Amino acid sequence: MAHGGRRQRAFIGSFTAAGGPGIVTAAVAADGALTVLSSLNGVPDPAYLALAPDGRTLYAVSETADGKVAAYDVTGDAPEPAGAPVPVGGDAPTHLSVFAGHVLTANYGSGSVTAVPLRPDGTLAGGPSAVLQHTGAGPCAPRQQGPHAHQVQPDPSGRWAVSVDLGTDSVRVCALTAAGLELHREIALRPGSGPRHLAFYPDGSHAYVVNELTPTVVVCRWDAAEGSLKPLAEVPLLPGAPAGDAYPSGVVVSPDGRFVWTATRGEDVLSVLAAEGDALRLLATVPCGGHWPRAITESNGVLYVANERSGDVTWFALDPADGVPRRAGSVRVPAASCVVFD
């Protein structure tokens, strides 16, 4: 059950420029099935959503040239704007998270990370208090001619902000101080790999970085005390060479740490891997239930896939024995970008 005794809800982002309705609210049944309740076209192209820790406020990034972040009160039946959207000081913000009293955004177009301060009530206090500009490039033109920050999130200890940059083939570890966002360490990954997203192991001992430009995931050891990430192995996500285009997108770790799931666009599959200490082992791949799986989310033993180009969110029951997703249903959401749960 969600806050206030209300059954859990899902909030689904969608790209308005591609015909999406904006932010969709859906009811979540006991078996994980989604039923659309309402939609809100609040900001253009909400590429990613994040909830405040208390579940009362929903944040959305507008992936446009004049990137903005917006806040919504979700204590009622449907999201309500909580103040005006504010600029992030970056181009095409594509991901966001809540960290240390701020909303952090990963700005793909400008290759930067922004910190937007929050008031105690969860509303946005104004424009960015800090912008950390990434630098560098990679060997794969035209995708890596400069930095492209694709994700930013807190580590499990809550001490560090970790950003993944597709353009520079690296992960950056940052601290948020009175002086702003400060770079603590940059970790280089294989040139041309194009890292996109990262997910932590539940106990914070490991992290898994999914690459977009090659269908692989990198197993890393994470040391929160030192704020250091050590790449250990790069594991293929597909059995054999991909038949055509293959662009991995999301990565999720099961709450018990036994399995890792990824989505790959083009091939339109979900990969299931067994987490075995410093290693990952590919167990299976299954169809994602649509076309162009942009993001995946796990909730209560169900895996949800936002299929951008087929315009739906598909959900899968997860076999507790082998981790294999089994398709259970779908709901129409044009140009779906992500799914989060309250």
Rank of each mutant, 00 (worst) to 15 (best):
S170L: 05
A178T: 10
L181P: 00
D203L: 12
I187Q: 09
L213A: 10
P191R: 02
T216L: 05
W160Q: 06
Y208S: 06
V210S: 08
T168V: 02
G192I: 02
T177A: 10
P215H: 03
V218A: 14
V219Y: 12
S193F: 07
V217P: 07
G204S: 10
G180M: 06
S170A: 14
L166Y: 03
P202K: 11
A179H: 09
V173I: 14
N211Y: 10
S205E: 13
P215Q: 05
E212F: 11
G180Y: 03
R159P: 02
W160C: 04
V210L: 09
N211C: 14
V210M: 02
D169P: 01
A199T: 04
F200A: 07
A188G: 09
Y201W: 14
G204E: 04
T216I: 04
V173F: 07
C174M: 15
R185A: 14
D155Q: 01
S157W: 13
A175I: 02
V217N: 00
R172G: 10
H197Q: 15
R196P: 03
R185Y: 08
T216K: 09
V219M: 10
A207F: 00
G194N: 04
I187S: 04
N211W: 04
E186R: 05
G167M: 07
L181S: 07
R196C: 06
S163Y: 00
R185S: 11
A179D: 15
S170D: 11
E182G: 00
R159C: 05
E182I: 01
P215A: 12
A188V: 06
S205D: 14
L183T: 12
L198W: 03
H184C: 07
R196A: 00
I187D: 00
A175H: 02
V218T: 15
D155V: 04
S170H: 05
R185D: 14
L176W: 09
L181N: 01
T216V: 13
L198I: 14
G180R: 01
F200M: 04
G194E: 00
V217E: 12
Y201R: 15
L198Y: 08
Q153R: 14
L183G: 10
Q153V: 13
L189S: 06
P156L: 12
S157C: 11
H206I: 01
P195A: 03
C220P: 05
E212Q: 13
R172K: 13
Y201K: 09
V209W: 08
G158S: 10
L176H: 11
R190L: 13
T216G: 09
T214E: 15
V171D: 05
R185H: 13
A179Y: 03
H197M: 10
W160P: 04
E186G: 08
A207M: 00
E186N: 03
W222H: 15
A178M: 07
W160S: 08
V162S: 07
T177R: 13
A199G: 06
P215R: 00
E186A: 15
P191D: 01
A188C: 01
E186P: 01
R221Q: 13
L166D: 05
G180C: 00
G204Q: 02
G180F: 01
L181W: 02
V217F: 12
C220H: 05
I187M: 08
C220S: 07
R196H: 05
N211Q: 15
R221A: 15
G167Q: 07
P202T: 09
G180L: 02
V162N: 04
T214V: 15
V171A: 00
A161H: 05
S157P: 09
Y201E: 15
R190S: 14
Y201H: 15
